[in-house]
């Protein structure tokens, strides 16, 4: 199960505003892709273009190799989870989930069977929840109903638009974990929109990082992390020290990206600096330390036992292998 999704030279306009510029993207069948980016970067628009909710100004959208550019949403074999869930307030849980099945004119017995199946998938006890009204449920339970409603029609592609942005961290993490399990179990292709890089790595086989209507870089999370295309990617996708490359040697242009966990204390690294500790924060499995040096503030993640405190003058640095250079 699961169909590939491909966008070729897709552009979307809102009036005169070019919301998406020349997007090219390929999502393998069954893959989990996260569209990550700051607000206004076009990630939701891209999702809506795949869903067929927002018309494209130019370019083509393919699902399973078929050109669906001008097909209505219900003929694209997709389901979508909305940021505000979009549950139907006048219907109970059963009828919310059954909505898509009823439109397919399935016999009542079959509808019931599938609704029960979907509710069990999302870990809602059908006997307990089926006849509840939507507003009688907690936020997390509503999320589950919305997910069941999307899954019950057995979509080939599941589109999610920041579905977990308004709920508690604990519940969010649990739902993310369950979504991942369902993704593996049912095999649908998944496209997930978020502005949160922690969610992105939790759910994504691949991440497409967007900015101002364009995809800046797409790849596995580790690729974006270790080999960011530019400063924007380095900064948005994880904590980073970004310094002019000229600090590492005369005549070098561009910027050097060094991850905080690669910064070490002592005299051994390739590139050495001396500075003053201005902040030390305990973060459970490491110390987050900020060191001021050469007019820059360096972030370092150090071992919890490191004897260091604010005001210390320290030698620190990083090895050449941990430096990644970007042009801009």
């Amino acid at each position: 199960m699961g169909l590939s999704v491909e966008l070729k030279d897709v552009a979307v306009k809102y009036g005169d505003f070019l919301a998406l510029k020349n997007i090219n993207l390929h999502v393998e069948a069954g893959e989990g892709l996260v569209l990550l980016g700051p607000s206004g970067s076009g990630k939701s628009t891209l999702l809506r273009a795949v869903a067929g909710l927002t018309p494209v100004a130019s370019g083509r959208v393919y699902i399973g190799g078929n050109d669906v550019t001008y097909l209505p949403p219900d003929r694209r074999k997709i389901s979508m989870l909305f940021q505000d869930l979009a549950l139907f307030p006048h219907l109970n849980v059963f009828e919310n989930v059954a909505f898509g099945l009823r439109l397919r004119h399935l016999p009542d017995e079959e509808v019931r069977k599938r609704v029960v199946w979907a509710l069990e998938l999302v870990r809602l006890d059908p006997a307990q929840f089926m006849s509840r009204r939507v507003h009688q449920l907690s936020g997390g339970q509503q999320q589950r109903v919305a997910l069941a409603r999307a899954l019950v029609v057995e979509p080939e592609v599941l589109l999610l638009d920041e579905p977990f942005s308004h709920i508690d961290l604990d519940i969010k993490n649990r739902l993310l974990g369950e979504l991942k399990i369902l993704h593996n179990k049912l095999g649908f292709t998944l496209i997930y929109v978020t502005h949160d890089r922690f969610e992105a790595v939790e759910i994504g086989d691949k991440v497409a990082l967007m900015k101002a209507g364009e995809i800046v870089q797409v790849g596995k999370p580790v690729e974006l992390y270790k080999r960011p295309k530019n400063r924007f990617v380095a900064e948005f996708f994880g904590e980073a020290n970004i310094i002019p490359a000229s600090l590492l040697g005369a005549g070098r242009g561009g910027y050097a990206v060094v991850r905080p966990e690669d910064v070490v204390i002592g005299n051994n690294p390739t590139y050495k600096f001396r500075g003053q500790v201005i902040d030390v924060t305990f973060l459970w499995h490491y110390l987050k330390v900020e060191i001021q040096s050469n007019g820059h503030i360096f972030k370092a993640y150090l071992d919890l036992e490191t004897p260091i405190s604010v005001g210390d003058a320290v030698d620190f640095g990083f090895d050449a292998k941990d430096v990644y250079l970007v042009e801009e």
Partner: peptide, 17 residues
């Protein structure tokens, strides 16, 4: 909400439905 309408459309409901 616009999304409730869109959700119905995605699930296969016509505009009239």
């Amino acid at each position: 909400s616009r999304s409730a309408v869109e959700a119905a459309r995605i699930l296969g409901a016509s505009e009239l439905r």
